[in-house]
Nucleic acid binder design. Structure first.
Lengths: 223, 223
DNA sequence: CTAGCATTCAAACGTTCGTTTGAATTCCAT
DNA sequence: ATGGAATTCAAACGAACGTTTGAATGCTAG
């Protein structure tokens, strides 16, 4: 019997990463103990230190596993957009940026939803090293999107664009991180919460309008 | 010498709350030990348990101290607005909502800035009890603002409004929580970061436009 | 078959955590 | 001034933490 085909090369690593993804999302990094994590993964307590070196290194691996493909997808969407037309519309650029995250959110079985919520939380995590890691993983992608938006909105001051991208990023992060339990505003249908297509329409409409908001108030009052 | 006038009634409590506010913001709740906290506050290690009962109760007290006045301010701003005219403009309502938070951000000396950043982070904190506490502290205010926005935007479906309020909330939370160190998008002038007036103009323009975004795309595609 | 490497395992390591204790001290009304 | 409550203090508690260890086991190339 060829059991090797059933048991992948690094099954223990994968089991740990999956368990970490879920537990970090539920309890945070410091709130998740190695004993709980390894128990959930069904591996020995020492397995994390053996395969990853330390808990911090595991945290980094959790992010690298998902963030690298997501960045690639974001850049690919932008490439496709810019190949079709020289200066894509702002809303199209926004959709290219948010789509990979939303797609990951729909993938509940493979743990993508866990990661997406974890990611949304980590943008505001007090862990400096982790924020620095994520920042450097994002930097090239952000520069590409900034340049694309500058071409799409040539009349907008660069400084204002940076702030509006900042706002966009916050909206996306918060939306992805939002939990079922916290419902500050009652009334949204729970079944809509994970409908990525519906959410993309709502986000794209909101963000495109915000990005295109009139400039006069800001410029006049800021002078 | 009347030292009692210099040393307030519960100086130890205040010193603890101030230190907690700053350290929780910097290192998170679980990342802040009682020993570090009490050392920073200049009080005995046992003082937190004596005055607050437990670390969890201290966390709750930290939020109650600032959130109660902020909610009061938010409701007062809305009262003033609705007293002046029957159905205020959406942007005016938005400004009433974000102004108290931004005012707190400018108050660096009294620790308001620490709290505001802490608050922004806590919206996505994995601590269930704390999220529930904050949710229930916010609920009445959010209902008032939701009703005001429904009057200001009578043509908008309630479900869509809830989502857009959700987006607004995310933008505000993320903006307040954003740290100096994490700069996913380079280019914003550091001195602008704490200029509440400038930030209010930028936020109000962005959020008002997003809130008023055209509905047709959403309605058509969601059908 | 077996030598050798990779992995798993139970057990223990030292450290740090939040909390408790009981005595010492400070405060304030009488 | 003084008795009693409120507060502060140094010290210690048991529990849980991330990590290390060295032997046991699994796997694979020669």
């Amino acid at each position: 019997m060829n059991l090797r085909a059933i048991k992948p090369q690094h099954e223990t690593r994968t089991r740990i990463l999956d368990a970490a993804e879920e537990l970090f999302m539920q309890h945070g990094f410091e709130g998740t103990s190695m004993r709980l994590l390894t128990a959930k993964a069904g591996v020995n307590l020492a397995a994390v230190n053996y395969h990853f070196g330390s808990k911090d290194a595991l945290v980094e691996a959790v992010f690298r596993r998902r963030l690298d493909p997501m960045n690639t997808a974001r850049l690919a969407e932008l490439d496709k957009l810019e190949a079709a037309e020289r200066a894509p519309q702002p809303e199209a650029i926004i959709r290219a940026f948010i789509a990979p995250g939303l797609r990951l959110m729909e993938d509940a079985k493979a743990g993508g939803r866990n990661f997406v919520r974890l990611l949304g939380r980590t943008y505001t995590e007090p862990n400096k090293a982790l924020r620095a890691l994520i920042g450097q993983m994002y930097a090239p992608t952000m520069q590409r999107y900034k340049a694309a938006l500058e071409r799409a909105l040539p009349q907008m001051p660069s400084e204002e664009l940076v702030w509006r991208m900042h706002f966009m990023f916050g909206t996306l992060a918060y939306t992805l991180a939002a939990t079922d339990t916290v419902q500050l505003i009652a009334g949204c249908k729970p079944e809509d919460r994970y409908d990525a297509r519906l959410l993309e329409e709502r986000l794209a409409a909101f963000l495109a309008a915000g990005l295109n908001a009139p400039l006069k108030n800001v410029i006049r009052k800021a002078a």
